[in-house]
Design a protein around this nucleic acid. Structure first.
Lengths: 203, 203, 203, 203
DNA sequence: TTGTAATCGAGACGGTACGTCTCGTCTTACT
DNA sequence: AGTAAGACGAGACGTACCGTCTCGATTACAA
């Protein structure tokens, strides 16, 4: 639906410079003016690009935004290594969730991520792509860490790891999106502890 | 920010008929055309109302949507009674979460609720209002049910009830908003069980 | 069509203060903001008056403007005395036309008079009223002065005095309205001389 | 200010079809609904054109109207030939003024011309353009006919031809604009005779 | 080395919706 | 009853973007 970069598309003489300029402009603009005022016209102008160049390669504002995130996620190292594994599951999870909290609170990522979430919520096709390309790989890393713990007997044997991931990150993301409370490191710790031990009393 | 209905605002000779027509039109339209194509112009036209009448009383599309939900939530009985309490906490929670799943899957509510969430995500003022008027009362009911269980010794004594609520509903809402998986009754059950018992093995 | 002041209108419990405030506001506003931006809403606001008070007593913006001129024309002395008559027709006419030029160039009257002319051009009913109440009496004075001259043998015996008035004032008003040239005292003199002597050579 | 057609303005890829549709629509609409109810929105709709296309190329309603007249005046032959010159000045002038009367009385031109006059009266820039492009050339033709007569000794040698033109056409236009009397062929004749002979008795 | 065809920046175009302003009508509360 | 105030349905204002289109200029492949 979005990028054709995977399949080289026969004779695609695409201008890589323009492509990067567009994605960068989109990401920066959504920080500056917010999701609501983000416009294709604005992106084109900021990127020094004709509007048609955007419409030629992307189907929607959301698709551009998605690719912008994709570019960011690929750029740094090489896809994202594994989650920390010191053997202490609780400590590791707290560290990771605290990092998530920090990222969501980072003004450079807050608006862009909200924008991406909004697009996903209103566009199933984009959601599928997100699931496959961005969320999927990250979720796999999380599950891998949990699987290690499970094999070490630190987690219930019959535990559904997808549910476990949801139980850890769902509350965080929901509080962030709905602004239903402050997103603090303490909150992250609290989620980890409660999720690990469960709501019921232990003895 | 939104409704002045609380404080009668001195001599505000407001047309209640128009007000209801606008809120109804907004709620219906967002179902039909979706959030992205929802427009003030469309709402006014559908409600048989001048645009100015909307701009006079609401500050944004989101504020209208919010009031539409507020109207709906007040209309039925009297604000929403308590959650079921049969003494069997797990069964009660499963019933409630299954009801939530059903509502989120109901095509009459799906788009409107996504729209409201989108507005909240991008408008802190609206989020505060939502927290106070809509989410707050509902969350209180949830906490009350949990508090009963806690006093009955079915939940950990040191449990933070807000975290508990997040742990139960957060995963659900997040999966729904991000479309990261199917929202089934089984999933609801799974969340309840896992949250109650925790990720760690018991014994 | 406009004011009911002529016929006392049975039970007219009309607020004279408001009436004057409206007319004054209209006249002042049209000077300040120009004809195009003159609005009933603005007049009402400036006059400290409800809009309905204007709509109750006048049928259009032009009618208000017309009455504003009527008020001005009645106020000063008592309806306008005769034109100067020193016996020297040419000198008298030059003086009167120069006065007309001065008035048309006066920034206090320029915009209001243009506005009135615009309304008249687009509203035959108002034009009739203008002809009867404002232009008529003034034209009668002009004709009276010319009639005196005619009886003194200074004007052709078969001269149509209405045509004569048009010949003298028409060029002036037309140049003013169409802005087809500078409106100077010299121009007024030139018109008078040329009209009196005719275009043809004398001998 | 208005037309860029003179200087092609570098790379202005202007749609000539739209341009003509707009001018035609403006001219027709002002006939049908009158000056007061003439709107840009209406013109755009009638011309099958986006509003922006009007705002892009014209600065005001009046500018559109002006160009509509310009188009009409250029279209027929090639700018307008000379005025009739049979040698009989009086007869020629009567013919031309009668033609003017006929045109002003023609319902196809009455409202549009009133509209144009209104715009000119309230917009000096437009008035200058009118003077240069529409009135100027026509006035030159009139003056040329008078100049011929002057050289033939039929007009006073010291006559200011601009004043002469004003004296002939000013009364006509003024009576038309102010609706101060019926515009008949007889009136035209009367103006010509009186202007030629002057108000004073001859011998 | 030279076509030739796709891509590029630019921006006009027919549209839709924005948020504001004014219209003329109406309702309310005060005098 | 008349008034000041102002809400109301209506609709035009002038602006911002939408997504499509056309226009040279540029560019990179295939002949």
């Amino acid at each position: 639906m979005t990028t054709q970069r995977t399949s080289p598309s026969s004779t695609a003489r695409r201008n890589e410079t323009s492509r990067r300029a567009i994605l960068t402009a989109a990401f920066e603009l959504v920080q500056e003016v917010g999701y609501v005022k983000l416009s294709i016209e604005g992106i084109a102008s900021r990127a020094g690009v004709g509007k048609q160049t955007i419409y030629r390669w992307w189907t929607s504002k959301g698709a551009v935004l998605f690719d912008a995130f994709l570019m960011l996620s690929e750029h740094p190292d090489g896809g994202g290594s594994a989650l920390p594994d010191t053997g202490d599951l609780e400590a590791d999870l707290k560290a990771v969730l605290r990092a998530t909290v920090a990222e969501l609170n980072d003004p450079r990522y807050d608006e862009p991520m909200r924008a991406l979430n909004t697009e996903i919520t209103h566009d199933p096709a984009l959601a599928a792509l997100y699931s496959e390309r961005l969320d999927g790989p990250m979720r796999e890393l999380k599950k891998q860490r949990l699987r290690n713990a499970q094999q070490a007997g630190q987690l219930a044997q019959d535990l559904d790891l997808d549910v476990a991931v949801d139980l850890l990150w769902g509350p965080l993301l929901n509080r962030w999106l709905q602004r239903s409370g402050a997103l603090t490191p303490d909150y992250a710790d609290n989620i980890v502890e409660t999720a690990l031990n469960g709501l019921r009393p232990r003895h």
